[in-house]
Write a protein that binds this DNA or RNA. Sequence first.
DNA 1: GTGGTCTAGACCACG
DNA 2: GTGGTCTAGACCACA
Lengths: 132, 132, 132, 132
Amino acid sequence: MLSIDPSDPTPLYAQLDRAIRSAIGSGRLRVGDRLPTVRQMAVDLRVNANTVARVFGELERAGVVETRRGVGTFIRARPADALSADDRHRRLTALADRYLADAADLGVSVDEAIAHLRERRAAEREETSDGQ
Amino acid sequence: MLSIDPSDPTPLYAQLDRAIRSAIGSGRLRVGDRLPTVRQMAVDLRVNANTVARVFGELERAGVVETRRGVGTFIRARPADALSADDRHRRLTALADRYLADAADLGVSVDEAIAHLRERRAAEREETSDGQ
Amino acid sequence: MLSIDPSDPTPLYAQLDRAIRSAIGSGRLRVGDRLPTVRQMAVDLRVNANTVARVFGELERAGVVETRRGVGTFIRARPADALSADDRHRRLTALADRYLADAADLGVSVDEAIAHLRERRAAEREETSDGQ
Amino acid sequence: MLSIDPSDPTPLYAQLDRAIRSAIGSGRLRVGDRLPTVRQMAVDLRVNANTVARVFGELERAGVVETRRGVGTFIRARPADALSADDRHRRLTALADRYLADAADLGVSVDEAIAHLRERRAAEREETSDGQ
DNA sequence: GTGGTCTAGACCACG
DNA sequence: GTGGTCTAGACCACA
């Protein structure tokens, strides 16, 4: 479900943080769901357990996740729920502009960039229905 | 022209390498074009000159640019050599997935994220026609 | 009567151990007094019964309490044994330093921190006389 | 200047975090000051460098400190400056009440607790003038 | 030389 | 068995 690319120069912990937040934001993980254990996730992602524990710790401090001592780690909130609609819109615009700018650097037009997103949407839906 | 985001956990050198290759791949930089000097680029990007120099060195070893002593650094490779269609597609997918993941963290669905891009496209077109 | 702060990074067992010893040292618990049962205390403090049991066990080994099978756990040591004047002074210093450090983090000087305590003292006295 | 007590059950990283914030809040460290290097502080406090690095990282995320890549770590802001006067007062009251409650557990009256703080103030002033 | 990331592996606190 | 803390030590990015 979550995946890490060790050849990506982005630090592993940052990739995992983004992956978990994204899974929550998209509804693949829901409030109250239990995350895999630190050690299990470490095995699955072929990453050191400390790296996973570090991410869990940061998500806890951020209020995204709640850890119950000796029990496990649970989704606590959709991170976005703390944001005002205005703030959300502003941040989304920043993300969109970064995406378009990076795509332009690749020589990809806005229309192509949007078309590509539709492809990704289709790909995700297939994965999701595979999983069910 | 090129931009670096110091708050992105991706290492500066990886960001710069990618930015230069993208500019070549997209045709914004063409074979024979001269790059800014190491020091100039370091100042522009607010990055240490050693970091820029290392990226130039790696690009030279990769055959993407050519350094003529006392003259400057020039684009050597054709866009096709610098970035295959396959590479381009792979990178675009990485960008799209990052955009979708970050949008999901904001609680924004894929469909909304795409719709938002359309808005941005419309906004850009207006700005462009305003400017003419 | 005893209190535990789950958000304090100090381990629960250390908090509980300290709380019980303090209560004895201060005379709030006296020799011969019966402690609540492990389970009752676990419920009251919202802590796992094993954690309470372990603290009781350590206190027993230290000679501070005595467990009479099927009857309950009783305070055994005299206050003087449980907490020497020296210990008391050392602990008070630790508490004071923590208070001053946390106050400093809020940008509050030592003098202001002391002044604030005087206010609290006044407030408490009012409450107390109100209650009478 | 900063000190850690390895026998205190409070985690080392929490002790260090409090110590640094306190030093900033009390003015012993000022905006723009450079902190000792991670490795130096690790040696001084007889703690692993990773533990220090972890605290620096958390302080950076909290905006208390700024790290300049390859240069060092600098005080960025007095953490308290982000707080409203109201908020500060509320938190100070919580701290004071905790101190008084813990002191009461030790059998120490409010007046004694205040007197003890005055002692600590005197002790700190001596240390400070020794250092000059 | 600076800080940052990651690993391996020990030991602790908690349920 | 759960997560949390700490250590030792490697290697990387940056100035």
